[in-house]
C-alpha cells in the first residue's frame, strides 16, 4: 500500500502539488488522471524518489519515504518497477538482456536462474518469439510489453506506469491495459498509472485520482465516474464527442 499525506511540491516558487492525500491499495490498478500540467508526472516522480517533496509524507507500507536513509531507499527501489512512457528499453540490448538487466545488476543470483526468471515473465507477456530481437525491431505495443516484463521481473511490490498507452492504437492499448491489470492481481502489486486515456480509465480504473491544478479534484472508481456531479471531472471526462455520446447512452 502507498499512502500520500498532504504532498506539496514547488519549482522556482511555482506550486505544482498543493497538498495531495491519497491511498493506493495493493492488487488494484490505481490511476492518476488529469490534464497536461495538472501535476501527474511530478506526483509520480515524487513517489519514485526522483523528486524530493517540500512537505507531506509518503508511506510505502508503513515506511515513510522522507525518513529513509540511502540504504533504505536502495532497498525500496528494488521493490519498485517502472514502465516509462517511451518504454525506455536499452537500445543495445536484446529483449532477453533488457529483462535480465535488473536482476543482473541488483541480485546475486546465478546466470541460469536469472535467465529462467526472465523467460518466465517474457512468456507471461507473450513475447517468446522475440527474445533475441533488439527494441528497434519491435512494434510499440511489443516494446511496452517488454517494458512491463522488465518492470515485474524482480517481483516488485509497487509498479508505476507513466502513460503506458501513449502512441498505441486503441486495440493494442486495451491489450496493454489488461496485461497490467492481470499482472497487478496475479502478483498483488500496488500499481499506480499516470494516464489521460479515458479508455484506460473505463477499462482498469479500480481507483481513480483526478488532479486539477495540483489539487485532488476528485477520487473514486470507474463506476462512480459516470455518476458523479463533480464539475471538474465531468468537464475532463466528457470533453470529447464520443464520451458525451457514451454518457447519453448510459443515462
Amino acid at each position: 500500500m502507498i499512502e500520500l499525506k498532504n504532498i506539496k511540491k514547488s519549482f522556482d516558487g511555482l506550486e505544482v502539488l498543493k497538498g495531495i492525500s491519497m491511498t493506493f491499495e495493493p492488487g488494484k490498478t490505481n490511476l492518476i488522471i488529469g490534464q497536461s500540467g495538472s501535476g501527474k508526472t511530478v506526483l509520480l516522480k515524487c513517489m519514485l524518489g526522483l523528486y524530493s517533496v517540500d512537505s507531506g509524507s509518503m508511506l510505502f507500507g508503513n515506511r515513510p519515504l522522507e525518513n529513509m536513509d540511502d540504504n533504505q531507499r536502495r532497498i525500496l527501489r528494488r521493490e519498485i518497477g517502472m514502465v516509462f512512457q517511451g518504454s525506455a528499453l536499452f537500445d543495445s540490448m536484446t529483449v532477453l538482456e533488457n529483462v535480465m538487466f535488473p536482476m543482473q545488476m541488483l541480485t546475486d543470483q546465478d546466470e541460469k536462474s536469472i535467465r529462467a526468471a526472465a523467460h518466465e515473465v517474457i512468456d507471461r507477456v507473450n513475447l517468446n518469439e522475440a527474445t533475441q530481437k533488439l527494441p528497434a525491431e519491435l512494434s510499440g505495443g511489443m516494446q511496452k510489453r517488454v517494458a512491463i516484463a522488465r518492470a515485474v521481473v524482480m517481483r516488485p511490490k509497487y509498479l508505476f506506469c507513466d502513460e503506458p498507452n501513449s502512441g498505441l492504437d486503441p486495440k493494442t492499448a486495451i491489450v496493454i491495459d489488461n496485461l497490467i491489470r492481470e499482472i497487478t492481481k496475479e502478483y498483488n502489486i500496488t500499481t499506480v498509472i499516470n494516464s489521460h486515456d479515458m479508455n484506460s480509465v473505463m477499462e482498469i480504473g479500480d481507483t481513480i485520482l483526478f488532479l486539477k491544478d495540483g489539487l485532488k479534484a476528485w477520487e473514486g472508481n470507474k463506476k462512480q465516474i459516470f455518476k458523479t456531479d463533480n464539475e471538474a471531472i465531468n468537464n475532463f471526462v466528457y470533453s470529447s464527442r464520443l464520451m458525451k455520446k457514451v454518457k447519453e447512452v448510459y443515462q
Binding site: F84, G86, D91
Partner: peptide, 17 residues
Amino acid sequence: GTMRVTEQIDALEVMGI
C-alpha cells in the same frame, strides 16, 4: 544524450543504479 532523451537514464536511476 540519446539515453537521456529516451528515459533510459531515468530507468537506471529508478532501479537504484
